[in-house]
Computed example of a mutant assay.
Amino acid sequence: MAGVSGCIKYSMFTFNFLFWLCGILILALSIWVRVGSDSQGILNSTNVSSSSHVAADILIAVGAIIMIMGFLGCCGAIKESRCMLLLFFIGLLLILLLQVAAGILGAVFKSESDRIINETLHDNTELLSTTGERAKQFQQAMAEFQKEFKCCGLVNGAADWGNNFQQDPKLCECLDTQRPCTNYNGEQVYEEPCISTIKDLLAKSFIIVIGIAFGLAVIEILGLVFSMVLYCQIGSK
């Protein structure tokens, strides 16, 4: 009876080790998107925050599961355990199917999510010109965001700040001569509103997730092939 191919066995181990590393990468990036994104402070004060948090939490769970699956595949390959390999194959296939379903749903609802984000950011411009605890938190986050990314206001520039601009005219002070500036109430402020910058940051985060998912899918398919070949070889020993 045919024995187990050492090439298949150690290839299976290598790919599962890469799979395990991908799980760590997804987990780390998901945590960064969840708590360390540049636009997180602004989104926390909007209606978009709940949906963005859910997406990040799902990715954190996926990253943890992938780490477990990678460990299971490595052990199954080294120990030549058919049970562990079968569990790995079934789990990996389910993850791949979920990824495909999530990708389809993401493509279908992308335009809708863009519209919701756009409307939410427009609706929250009033927080810049009002008072209150929620408004102050949003204004503080926006002030830090403006300083870092050299923009002003959300949609209409410095005008979004209303009377609050008079209390702190240095909110949008234009200090970078390489950026377009404009005069508002006698002060030189950044001309570009921050809405485009926020959208760009969200788009970059989305591209990162798509890139990781695509690379992960390739590794998953290879893992499925190697695990089934190794499973059949162990059974035929």
Results as ranks from 00 to 15, higher is better:
1 M>T: 12
3 G>K: 10
4 V>L: 02
4 V>F: 05
6 G>D: 07
7 C>E: 00
8 I>D: 00
8 I>C: 07
12 M>C: 15
13 F>D: 03
16 N>Y: 00
18 L>E: 01
20 W>Y: 09
20 W>D: 09
20 W>P: 06
23 G>A: 04
25 L>K: 01
26 I>L: 08
26 I>N: 00
27 L>G: 09
28 A>S: 11
29 L>Y: 07
35 V>C: 05
35 V>D: 03
37 S>T: 08
37 S>Q: 10
39 S>T: 12
41 G>A: 07
42 I>S: 05
44 N>C: 05
44 N>W: 04
47 N>Y: 06
47 N>T: 09
50 S>P: 00
57 D>V: 13
60 I>F: 01
62 V>Q: 07
62 V>R: 06
63 G>M: 03
64 A>V: 08
68 I>C: 13
71 F>W: 06
71 F>E: 05
75 C>P: 03
85 L>M: 10
86 L>I: 07
89 F>R: 04
89 F>V: 09
97 L>D: 08
97 L>P: 03
104 I>A: 06
106 G>S: 13
107 A>S: 14
108 V>R: 05
110 K>Y: 09
113 S>M: 12
114 D>I: 08
115 R>M: 04
117 I>S: 01
119 E>G: 00
120 T>N: 03
121 L>P: 04
127 L>E: 10
132 G>N: 13
132 G>I: 13
133 E>T: 15
134 R>G: 14
134 R>P: 09
135 A>E: 10
137 Q>L: 14
137 Q>Y: 10
140 Q>D: 15
140 Q>T: 15
142 M>E: 08
142 M>R: 03
142 M>W: 01
143 A>F: 06
143 A>S: 11
145 F>G: 04
145 F>H: 08
146 Q>W: 03
147 K>I: 08
147 K>M: 10
148 E>A: 11
151 C>Y: 07
151 C>T: 10
153 G>S: 06
156 N>Q: 13
157 G>H: 03
162 G>Q: 03
162 G>F: 02
165 F>D: 06
171 L>F: 08
171 L>D: 02
172 C>W: 01
173 E>A: 14
174 C>K: 07
174 C>V: 05
177 T>I: 12
178 Q>W: 08
179 R>M: 15
179 R>T: 13
179 R>W: 07
181 C>V: 08
182 T>H: 03
182 T>L: 10
182 T>Y: 00
183 N>M: 15
192 E>D: 14
194 C>P: 06
194 C>W: 04
196 S>Y: 07
196 S>T: 15
197 T>G: 09
197 T>A: 11
197 T>L: 07
200 D>M: 13
200 D>T: 14
201 L>Q: 14
204 K>G: 12
205 S>P: 03
208 I>G: 11
208 I>T: 15
210 I>W: 05
210 I>P: 00
210 I>R: 05
211 G>V: 11
212 I>A: 10
214 F>I: 15
214 F>C: 14
216 L>D: 02
217 A>R: 02
220 E>P: 05
222 L>A: 09
224 L>F: 06
224 L>G: 08
224 L>H: 07
225 V>G: 09
227 S>E: 11
228 M>Q: 10
231 Y>W: 13
232 C>E: 08
234 I>N: 11
235 G>S: 14
